[in-house]
Nucleic acid binder design. Structure first.
Lengths: 131, 131
DNA sequence: GCCTTGGATCGACAGACGTCAACATAGAGG
DNA sequence: CCTCTATGTTGACGTCTGTCGATCCAAGGC
């Protein structure tokens, strides 16, 4: 069950966290890895699942509490949970009969950092004729 | 050209910004709107395009500077730019012969806020048997 | 007017994605 | 061992998405 295929993401610069996406042109392979995570977030069902998991007091949710919240079959929910897990956004653990999911805050933190622009952004000025 | 179909997103609570996604279960229509934006980010080409636009000194990029950076046809790049525009992430403006794109930082700011968890997150404790 | 150049749009096609029913698997409890 | 419940996996199906070539529109220069 704990076979999450962690997404590694082209690492943070040695000095601080996350080059940015908004500051540097973003290399091709970094873009590919990042896109997988954003793609996992690009579905309403998965967003709601993640939201339900993350906002749960105690930090863990049983699948049996997630499934009835949707008009979807159980295999479909399971499929979406798998995608979120493969994206490195959540982790699962079996305890007895039930499987519990919890948020992996490292990934959401990373995304938030990637989408945050640096404080001293240069003021935009109209560009001239291009090259 | 300025016909960006702004994504509205179920609004921020009156007191502060962005209920969170990580704090409350996220309503169905909010999830749908949010998913559109994340889906726009869920492609390596669009991520690189956004990155190139956002990191450009001056804040604006001509399409003619974006297209040659990819091994893709010009219509394909134009298609991706359209999706980013419809997601509310960028805006375009024609000046003379060329079309310039610029980042709309409101949307990336909003996403960053949505992915940021509140400071005092309760410590996760193993849950008991579910309902 | 015509031609050229920069971009957007259209139509088509292969591949990816969301969904389901059917089946498989893992514990719990007889 | 057998059965029942809770989840994951598989195979199939229709739809959406990324890509292209062909075409069209806008602006400039002749």
């Amino acid at each position: 069950m704990s076979n999450q295929e962690f997404v590694v993401l082209g690492q943070d610069g040695p000095g601080g966290c996350c080059p940015g996406l908004l500051t540097a042109p973003l290399a091709e392979d970094q873009a590919t890895e990042l896109a997988k995570v954003f793609k996992a977030l690009g579905d309403p069902v998965r967003l709601r699942l993640l939201s339900m998991i993350a906002s749960r007091a105690g930090g863990e949710v049983c699948v049996c509490d997630l499934t009835p919240a949707f008009d979807l079959s159980q295999p479909t929910i399971s499929h979406h949970l798998k995608l979120l897990r493969e994206a490195g956004l959540i982790a699962s653990e079996r305890r007895g009969t039930w499987v519990f999911y919890r948020l992996l805050p490292e990934m959401t933190d990373r995304l938030a950092g990637i989408l945050t622009r640096p404080a001293g952004e240069p003021l935009p000025e109209p560009a001239q004729a291009p090259s």
